[in-house]
Every structure is written in structure tokens, then in C-alpha cells.
Computed example of a mutant assay.
Amino acid sequence: MDLATLIGMLGAFGIIIAAIVTGGDALVFINVPSLLIVLGGTVMAVLIKFPLSHFLGAFKVALKAFIHKTENPDELIREGVALANVARKEGVLGLENQEISNEFLKRGIQFCVDGHEPEFVRSMLNKDINLTIERHERGQAIFKALGDMAPAMGMIGTLIGLVQMLSNMDDPKQIGPAMAVALLTTLYGAIIANAFALPIADKLAHRTMEERLNKNLILEAINGIQEGINPRVMEELLKTYLPPSKRDLVDEKEAA
């Protein structure tokens, strides 16, 4: 569970709700026509832009913002170096019975054990990386579209409310409900965009960056194993994927 995402989202909605409740009657902020315009209009507009399967799949991708656990690169480095040591002593076939926790690394090692050429292995793993990133970016694009369309639908609702208000100026009882639609649609659109859709899109972009880094690190390790690079040299190479402040920590953990 990503506590930052959960705390941030609950905190944002909690602060908004607290401001509404402490400021007076909270029921005045509930308006069904405004919700229909913003929620329904936003979803329908985004469906125009993307296929239905991509739209529904984006919510599965969005779970990575809440429950995805990214592996530490230093753990991947230690595992890669350990496998390189085994391959140096026993040959590549000695990796066949090794326990490997990361599925992407496990797949790459299996390619090596099966005797595929380094060019083939790199090509297959690169294709895996690119397709994974493409799926993630598709989910990001849908949430960015939601973030873009919600305020736009809020503005449309505002215009609808203003037209209704101006067309009923002779009836004071109609002015209040029309003005509520005008203002609340803008509020709903801003909340959906800035407290939900756009933050989720940015968190998914961060997850994509982390996954790309880890998979490129693994690809480098597998390539080093196939080329027979000295494990110590490979470790130094893989540590370039870490920030300078974390590189010494890998050595300390190995020593421990």
C-alpha cells in the first residue's frame, strides 16, 4: 500500500469536506444536475477520445498508485551480482535452479539458460519494457484527459446555470437554483481534476519511471552475465543506476 497516495487523497478530500461542513449547511453543496453535468459529461467526453477497453483498463492501471510496491534497485543489484557469481563459477546452466524473486529477471535468466544469443535476449526484454511502458502511459493519458475534461464540463455547467438564471430573472425563486448549478459545476470539476485525476496521472508517471529504471538495470545485469563480465565490475556498473548517496549503502549491506 502506498501511504503517500492514500494519505494525500484522503487528506485533500477531508480538508474540502471539513471546510464545507464548518462553513454552514453542507447540503447546499449537493446538486444532482451539477453532478450529472460534470461526472457524466466528463466520462462521456473521455470515452469519445479513447476505446472503451482502454478506458476500463486505465482503472486497473490506477491501482498501481495505491497498492503497487516497487522493488528497491539495491536489492536488484545484489541479486544480479549473486547470479553473476553463480554463472562465473558454474556456467550459465548453473542459474537454472536459482530462486529468483523478480519475474522480469527470472524471464531474462531463462532466456540465457535456454542458450539464446545476447542480441535476441536484449531484443525480447526491450520489447517487454516498451510494451509495459506503453500500457502505463495509456492509463496516464486517460487520467490526464479526465483532469482536462472535468473543469471544462464544470465551465459548461456554469454557462448552463447562467443561461437558466438570466432567462428567469422575473421569477426570483428560480435564480437561486440556477446559480447553484452555475457555481457547483465549477467546484465539482475543479475537485475531480485537482484532487483525483491529475494527481493519479502524476503518480502513475512516477511509477512508470521507477519500473523503467528497474527493468533497464535488470537488462544490464543479464547482458553482463551473458558477456561474462566480472561480477565486481558489473556491480559497479549497476550502481550507476543509484543516486550517489545510496551507492555506498549497497556495499555496507553486502558487508553486513
Rank of each mutant, 00 (worst) to 15 (best):
M165H: 03
S167M: 09
N168R: 06
D170K: 13
D170H: 11
D171R: 11
P172F: 10
P172I: 14
Q174N: 12
Q174F: 04
I175H: 06
G176Y: 14
M179P: 05
M179V: 08
A180K: 10
A180W: 06
A180V: 13
V181W: 00
V181I: 15
L184M: 12
T186M: 08
L187P: 01
Y188E: 04
Y188S: 05
Y188N: 08
G189Y: 01
G189H: 03
A190K: 07
I191E: 06
I191Q: 09
A193Y: 01
N194Q: 11
A195M: 14
A197I: 00
L198P: 01
P199K: 03
I200T: 06
A201P: 01
A201D: 00
D202I: 11
H206S: 09
H206M: 13
H206R: 10
R207V: 15
R207N: 14
R207F: 07
R207D: 11
M209D: 11
E210H: 12
R212W: 02
R212K: 09
L213Q: 09
L213I: 10
N214C: 09
N214I: 01
N214Q: 06
K215T: 06
K215V: 06
K215Y: 09
N216S: 04
N216W: 07
N216T: 12
N216E: 15
L217Q: 07
L219C: 08
A221P: 05
I222H: 00
I222K: 01
I222Y: 02
N223W: 04
G224Q: 06
G224A: 10
G224I: 06
G224N: 08
Q226C: 09
Q226P: 07
E227C: 10
E227R: 15
E227N: 13
E227M: 14
G228Q: 11
I229W: 00
N230R: 08
P231Q: 10
R232I: 07
R232F: 12
V233H: 05
V233I: 15
M234T: 00
M234P: 01
E235D: 08
E235N: 09
L237R: 11
L237N: 14
L238E: 02
L238W: 02
T240A: 14
T240S: 14
Y241F: 15
Y241C: 04
L242V: 03
L242Q: 05
L242R: 05
P243Y: 08
P243T: 07
P243G: 08
P244M: 09
P244G: 03
S245A: 14
S245K: 13
S245R: 13
K246H: 12
K246I: 01
R247Y: 05
R247V: 02
R247S: 06
R247L: 09
L249C: 02
L249E: 15
V250N: 00
D251A: 10
D251C: 02
E252L: 15
